[in-house]
Design a protein around this nucleic acid. Structure first.
Lengths: 259, 259
DNA sequence: TGCTTTTCGTTCAAAAACGATCAAATTCTA
DNA sequence: TAGAATTTGATCGTTTTTGAACGAAAAGCA
């Protein structure tokens, strides 16, 4: 708990603010001011910042938390690795989406960042095998189509042969795919063969395949391969990706954007 | 969480209003005003906004909810009158499940009570179209298979033609089905045709179909029919069900258990 | 039908909340 | 420690929300 008389440092206070909002769902500016013992101006500024980060939505008189209480703690730890890069990658991906499109999101933390950006886009159709993404979009925004299948606990995604039944009947304009690892030699790989199977089907059917992967994923090879780079139209990554990739990928038809 | 004497935030108040309407189906402006302790002008303005969002329809003297009250997500469901009955019905249903079975749960609050009881049963396979049930079981316990399809917001279930793709490929020993209404003449009905469609397929394919419905559902007829009683093997209900049902249902092959 | 009561929509002024700005306070850095 | 950069709180004009007032419309009743 925060000490009574010593004012908290700003980032610490904002985190506290975020927690409080998450707890109650909503809160009024005046209540927050009293609790944190600062001026309303400060509260407003903090809320402004939290809104920019997508943590809360401001309303007249207060703010509403945008974070779901259902989120996996384990999962959350993983998302915090390279969170900034992932956020930026997601924002870049978002800018590519055009009105009324149908898009696919696979499981993983990077695509979840993207899902969060879609909450207000009721013109879109989002096809996904990610339970997390579905929860994120369950209350508002785009039309959501979940592909069926067995729920894989670790990743909270639907995988396995049953997924292909739904996938065969829909077409998406753009597929945004996260991956566990990629390299020039082995292409795109993930840990679970069932997960790979679903990804593979999507990569073959989608109008465009856009890979979202921060540079930590480079040179990693996992057990199950789901695609070669020739199926990929665009890679969105961060500035730390080695030149080896940024030079050679365009030569084999993969555009690269670094953010 | 929210302080007593501080007035509610406008969006919060509107959400409350929506909930109240959803509970009772209809409400008068004056009653809402008294409950929320604001002026009638504010109530009217709020109802106007809710009407624009399609949540309610205004009528002279008040408003009618456009949402079905039985399908609201549980964690918001504070005043569920039939909660005790539903819990007992779920417990009775649980006692019927044998080791290593595959079962189906459709959407709705009663089946969600059952889902909660299954958390430790890692021998089972649970097939469901309910996002809520999947979340409930996402971390431990049974193998979970979600059928795919479009996510219907109000009920948080997967519905529509795409669901049949997965359903056609699995077989369940027992299907536990909730319903919005049932009566001798019209059989089992629910509000949404897509929801009905999925239920219908399951009712036809499952080894046994077990209906979970408290007595409030009796004599209710909703828009979309999904089954006749001849497809039902067993009805689990509470003691308030009228004798009309408890006498005549066994004659047409439906066992009845009251708890 | 005509009359009364209730409800509705609109207008208006008061209150609350907001954003912008600026000076004081605090923290950072060289 | 001095100066720069950042953060904070107060002020003020503007916008949004709210409640009350009042005439119009709808419902109830004889």
């Amino acid at each position: 708990m925060i000490q009574e008389n010593s004012p908290a440092l700003a980032p610490q206070r904002r985190e506290h603010l975020r927690q409080m909002l998450r707890e109650g769902g909503v809160a009024r500016v005046e209540d927050l001011r009293r609790k944190l013992d600062v001026s309303v101006a400060t509260i407003r500024r903090d809320l402004e910042i939290l809104e920019e980060d997508g943590k809360v939505r401001r309303v007249h008189g207060g703010a509403v938390s945008m974070e779901s209480r259902l989120e996996e703690p384990v999962f959350e730890n993983k998302t915090n690795l390279a969170a900034k890069e992932k956020q930026r990658i997601a924002e870049e991906a978002y800018s590519l989406i055009e009105p009324d499109e149908a898009i696919y999101l696979n499981g993983g933390s990077t695509t979840l960042f993207l899902a969060r950006l879609l909450r207000e886009r009721s013109d879109l159709t989002v096809v996904t095998n990610s339970l997390q993404a579905a929860i994120e979009l369950a209350d508002s925004g785009p039309r959501v189509i979940l592909i069926g299948g067995e729920l894989r606990r670790i990743s909270q995604t639907m995988v396995g042969p049953l997924t292909s039944a739904v996938l065969a009947q829909v077409h998406v304009d753009k597929a945004f795919m996260g991956t566990m690892g990629f390299c020039l030699k082995n292409g795109l790989t993930t840990t679970d063969p069932n997960e790979a199977y679903s990804n593979e089907i999507v990569a073959e059917q989608a109008g465009q395949v856009i890979l979202l992967a921060d540079s930590n994923k480079a040179e990693k090879v996992c057990f199950a391969r789901f695609s070669d780079f020739d199926k990929i139209d665009l890679l969105i990554t961060d500035k730390n990706l080695s030149v080896e990739y940024t030079k050679s990928l365009p030569k084999i038809g993969v555009k690269v954007r670094t953010v």
